[in-house]
Design a protein around this nucleic acid. Structure first.
Lengths: 189, 189
DNA sequence: TAATTTATAGACAGATTTGTCTATATTCTG
DNA sequence: CAGAATATAGACAAATCTGTCTATAAATTA
C-alpha cells in the first residue's frame, strides 16, 4: 500500500484496524505505534491526543463507508435494485470484516456520551444513512408520508441486521431483513 | 434498598450501574469498590477477578431483563397485545435508562470475541429473545414458515429500534418499528 | 462469652496507560 | 551541498489498572 509510506496515514490505518478489531478503549497508543512502525513523537505531532486519533478515525470511516456503498451500487440502475443491493453490501461487508459489526455502533457503545465530537460524527453518519434510504424509497413509493415510514422501517431493519449478525456470527438476519423489505415494498407499491 | 447491606450484592449492583453507564473497560475495580463501599479483599473473595464480576453482571442482567419484560406483559392477555407491548416496554426502558441502549449489545461491542463466557451469555440472551418473539407470532400466524420469517423481522426491528434510539436519543425508531409490526401482522393474518 | 467467620482499610507490586521531552537520524528543499 | 523540516528511538513522568497481602475491626455462631 502506497499510502503507508506516510507516518500520519500509517497511524490512521493502523488505528482504524485496531479500534475496529479490539475496541477503542482496549487499544493503546503504544500498540498503534508499534504496529504502524511510527515514533511516538510523530503521533503527537500529527494528532494532539488519542481522542483526536479517534475523531480522525470516525471521520475517515464515515467517508470510507459511503464510498464503498456507492461503489457497490454503481452498477444498479433503479432505486428498487439499489435498495435491495444495500443488504447485499451489508452481507458482503460483514463477511469481509469477520462479523465485527458496525464501527459506529461499536464505538458509541464505548464512548457513550463522553466525547461529544465523536458522538456527533456517529449521529450524523446514521442520520445520513437514514436520509439515504428515504431518498431511495421516495422514488418507489409516491405517497410521502408512507415513503417516510417505510424508509425508516428499512433503516431500522438494516441496523438491526448488522447488530444481530455480529452477535450470531451469521447472515440470517440480513436475509430476513431483505425479505421483509420486499414485503413492505410490495404492500405499498 | 435492603439487599445493599450485603457486600457481594452491593458490588454487583454498583458494577451493573457503572458498566452500563460508562462501559466495562472504562470502569475500574477501584471505582466499584469506592461507590459500593466495599473493601478490595471482599471483591476478590466473592469474585475471583474483574472478568468474573463481568460474568455475574451479564447473567444477572439476563434474568432481570426477562423478569421486567414478563412483569410488564402480565396484564396483557392475547399474543398480539403482548407483541405490541414489547415495544412499549422497550420505549419505557429506554427512557428510564436515559437512552443507554442495550446492555448486551454495548458489552459485546467492548469485549468482542475476547471473553468466551461473556459472549456466550449475550448470544444465549438474544437467542432466547428471538425464540420469545417466535412463540408469540406462532400464536397469531398459523403457517409455520411465515410465522418464523415474520418473527425474525420483528426481532430485528426490535433490536434496530434499541440501537437507533440510543444513537438519536429519541424513540421515533421504536414507534416506527411498532407500526411496521402492525403492517406485517395485517399482511399475513 | 469465646471462637470463628467475614469485612475493612490500605499498603504494595507489577504492568500499563497517555503524554512529554531529548537527542539523533533521515528526508526534503532551496 | 547546506539548511530546515520531519521522523526516529526511547527515557521518563504521573496516573491508573488489576490483583495480593497484612493487620485490624465487626459480626456471626456455638
Amino acid at each position: 500500500m502506497a499510502s503507508k509510506s506516510n507516518p500520519k496515514d500509517r497511524i490512521l490505518e493502523t488505528a482504524s484496524r485496531l479500534f475496529y478489531a479490539q475496541g477503542y478503549n482496549a487499544t493503546g497508543i503504544n500498540q498503534i505505534l508499534d504496529e504502524a512502525k511510527v515514533a511516538k513523537a510523530s503521533l503527537y505531532k500529527h494528532y494532539g491526543s488519542k481522542d483526536e486519533v479517534g475523531i480522525a478515525y470516525v471521520k475517515a470511516a464515515r467517508e470510507d463507508w459511503f464510498n464503498a456503498l456507492n461503489s457497490f451500487l454503481e452498477k444498479k440502475t433503479t432505486s428498487s435494485e439499489k435498495l435491495f443491493a444495500c443488504f447485499d453490501f451489508l452481507e458482503r461487508n460483514l463477511r469481509i470484516n469477520d462479523f465485527k459489526g458496525c464501527r459506529f455502533i461499536n464505538l458509541l457503545a464505548e464512548i457513550s456520551g463522553q466525547n461529544a465530537e465523536i458522538r456527533k460524527e456517529i449521529v450524523d453518519h446514521k442520520t445520513t444513512l437514514r436520509a439515504f434510504f428515504k431518498n431511495l424509497v421516495t422514488d418507489i413509493i409516491t405517497d410521502k408520508a408512507t415513503a417516510s415510514q417505510i424508509a425508516d422501517s428499512i433503516f431500522i431493519l438494516f441496523e438491526g441486521a448488522v447488530v444481530e449478525s455480529k452477535i450470531h456470527l451469521d447472515v440470517w438476519a440480513v436475509k430476513a431483513a431483505k425479505k421483509t423489505v420486499t414485503i413492505l415494498l410490495e404492500t405499498y407499491k
